[in-house]
Every structure is written in structure tokens, then in C-alpha cells.
Design a protein around this nucleic acid. Structure first.
Lengths: 92, 92
DNA sequence: TATACATTTAGATAAATATCTAAATAAGGA
DNA sequence: TCCTTATTTAGATATTTATCTAAATGTATA
């Protein structure tokens, strides 16, 4: 989960996740939303992929990126635990 | 919220937050939980403070650090939004 | 006030990261 | 097969970050 936290630390990568929340997109269309170069976006996409936050699938000439929410849920779980002082203290 | 995401990206800082979830602690006691130097811990505590994730309060010779959950909730909200594709799509 | 303890600040350094341009790979179509 | 388009990989560079030791600051107490 450390990789996911690190991936989420960058504003560009968070914005990519927000784009993908709406719909899956290919690398080029994602890159068009930003001012930085395509190779940089490709690098960010790779980090998101390593972190398990997105999945990629080649579709002909394009590569389609899709949000993958399992790890997001894991991170949310960690955060939720922080909010609840001592998860062992009571059960009811 | 960017500072909070960046603060959460470091494993030592996340561990500090987990310590403080149990109870408020002073800088020295926090540092004793780690192998790294006190100045390094002080630096991490400062970043957590800048991010709004902890608060500090001098108590005599010691400085007491306390978890501050408002920003954690903000981050959770962001994550929650990512999980729900298109928050505008329906209301019921 | 002198001393000890707790913590931070200063300054240095090594490692990690974000970004770029240029080149390579992969697929589709003439 | 040749050319175009889509994307990634390689390699370089500047910035940021985590860490350290040494010094400074703040508080308590003899």
C-alpha cells in the first residue's frame, strides 16, 4: 500500500484518477488534459499501474487505462482506522 | 489537501499517525519508537503539522503531539468520491 | 544562575522524483 | 513493405526529500 500512498502524493496523478473516474481513456487522451509531455504522463500512468490504482489494456494502436478501485478501498480502510481511535476498544 | 497527501506518502509519518491514534504523545516518546534520529522525527512532525494532520502543544519541557482528524476526513472524502463513478449521475 | 533535559533549527549530503528531448517499439493502413 | 500514429523506454537534469551531526532554543530545577 506504500506505493499507492506515494502514487497519490502527486497532483497530476490524482487528476488522472479523477479523469478515469468518469470513464476509461487511452494514454493520448489522458495526456491531452495536461500541459506536460506525453512521456511524463506515461511515467505517471506507469506509477499508478505499479500501485494497482489503474489497469491498462491494449486496444489496437491505443492503450486503454481504467481505474482500479480495490487499492483505493484499502487506502480508505487505513484512513478510516486512523479516524477511529483504538479499533479494539469496543464492539457494540 | 496536497500537503496532506504528500505527508501521508511517507511510511514513518503514517506510523506516527497510527501511534497518535492510540494516544497523544510528546516528541521524545514518538522518536523512541523509531530508529532514526530525533531531528529527523522532528522534521516529520513538522510536515504532519503543516499538513494539518497533527497539532502540537507545549507542556513544560515537552511538546505534546495530537492527531487532528479534520484533514484525514477531507482526504477520505476525496477517496470516496473516486470510488463513486460520477457523483452527479443520480440523486436517489 | 548554572546545569540538565527536550526539542527544534541549521547546514550538509545522498537518494528519489518529475520533467524533458530523442529514440525505440508496436499496430494499422496504403 | 513503407509510412503514420500511439505509446513507451532511455538517458539527462533540476528539484525535492529524508537523513545525519552539530548547534541553538526553551524549560525545569538544584
Amino acid at each position: 500500500m506504500n506505493e499507492a500512498f506515494k502514487a497519490l502524493a502527486d497532483p497530476t496523478r490524482r487528476e488522472i484518477l479523477q479523469l478515469l473516474r468518469e470513464k476509461s481513456m487511452n494514454a493520448g487522451d489522458i495526456a491531452d488534459h495536461f500541459k506536460i509531455s506525453k512521456p511524463s504522463i506515461s511515467h505517471h500512468l506507469n506509477l499508478l499501474k505499479q500501485a494497482g490504482l489503474v489497469m491498462d489494456e491494449r486496444q489496437g494502436q491505443h492503450i486503454l487505462y481504467t481505474l482500479h478501485t480495490t487499492v483505493v478501498e484499502d487506502v480508505m480502510g487505513w484512513m478510516f482506522n486512523i479516524l477511529n481511535k483504538k479499533d479494539k476498544e469496543e464492539s457494540s
